[in-house]
Design a protein around this nucleic acid. Structure first.
Lengths: 205, 205
DNA sequence: AAGCATTTGTGATATGATGTACAAGGGTGA
DNA sequence: TCACCCTTGTACATCATATCACAAATGCTT
């Protein structure tokens, strides 16, 4: 895995494959060929085969891939941890929706606790406890690497604090563009920008 | 605009530029150079200039770009419509959070109404009315092209219905992979996959 | 047991995106 | 008004990604 650089584009497709494979497994599919999987996820079979080849020789010629063991390899080699501890920073509308949205149990781990600066939001609204952001260091779970950011202001300041505390991956739901040093990965999910891009594409047919 | 194909990668950056330009305009900045804008959004100045060049010659040599008129050009040429009518399909936790999350007013239009199949959710929980999905055709706003999908099941079926009703752009918050015919653009925003990708990248350093 | 039909994995190639270098031309100050 | 300076817009080079084409290898059938 670490020996050869996996292209960024490939890395972005792994979650798609994993999701599809889980679904297929659930449907009782035991083996699959790159062609079929390609139709399923709308990706060229040749792209899939090359993407898989970065991890190793996972298939058998003239046969295809074994779904169950493929899932295992993905989980293992890619370091998916079902107990990955996530924190949520910002317990507003969106943050609370994400807390209640516990569909990701047993897929990527779960939100262990949340933080906010608004005293009204501190406490246990749902199953997830909400602490004050100033107590971050105290309550930050051991081994927690990834934070979901849904604050409504001071995003950069909050990010700096998170990074200082050891967070290395941030899912940014904020409208602000945030900066992070090398080694920290930020992925911005902006509904507004997504809609805009969609409009641009639609207008551009 | 339509004469020359705008690269996909560029199309994905336009919303970033637009967001940054609005912020700069708000801050009172009247003119900007590609270099400065580049620092602001973490994109190479040369990439910015090239991206802009697909729309036209928007800047002046030795001067830079006029922020206000640049915003106008983007809005106009790219077809941003502040009154773009959006619908929301699926009024669960996430759907309701998005309805309350009216930060996008005056940026891309707003959610006009929502649809769900659960009778308990029909009515006016917030300012946004919620209708039964079976009445889609009746309540679908005139000229509405884009739908935000937050249903928890039967995603593909719902998508087919939306497309049949004239929707050409879908923001998919569902975990399911959905298929759409050519001409309809689907953009999937999957928190779980985003987190996974982040984990893969972090593990891959 | 042997050969055929498949499908993988990968070198070679085409396409697309990004980065470099610089000519062209407007803005600014004297 | 003139000359210099600065920044744009783009040709060219480089890098990344996707696609093509096929040899190698396995399962399946007879």
């Amino acid at each position: 895995m670490k020996q050869n650089k996996v292209p960024k584009a490939t890395l972005q497709r792994y979650p798609i494959y994993l999701k599809a494979l889980r679904k297929l497994h659930h449907m009782g599919v035991e083996r699959i060929m790159s062609r079929e999987l390609g139709n399923f996820v709308d990706i060229e079979s040749t792209t899939i085969r090359r993407d898989f080849s970065f991890i190793g020789s996972l298939g058998k010629q003239g046969y295809g891939y074994d779904v169950a063991s493929l899932i295992d390899v993905f989980n293992g080699q890619l370091g998916v941890n079902f107990d990955e501890k996530l924190i949520l920073v910002g317990a507003g509308n969106l943050g609370r929706a994400l807390m209640n949205y516990n569909r990701w149990n047993h897929v990527v781990g779960e939100i262990v606790c949340a933080f906010d600066t608004d005293n009204d939001k501190i406490g246990s609204l749902s199953e997830v406890p909400v602490y004050h952001l100033r107590d971050l260091k105290q309550y930050l779970p051991e081994g927690c690497r990834i934070a979901i950011l849904t604050v409504s202001g001071n995003a950069q300041e909050t990010v700096d604090l998170l990074i200082e505390s050891g967070i290395v991956g941030i899912v940014n739901f904020t409208h602000e563009h945030i900066q992070a040093p090398k080694g920290v990965i930020v992925r911005t999910v902006d509904v507004v920008s997504t809609i805009q891009e969609l409009i641009f594409q639609v207008n551009n047919f």
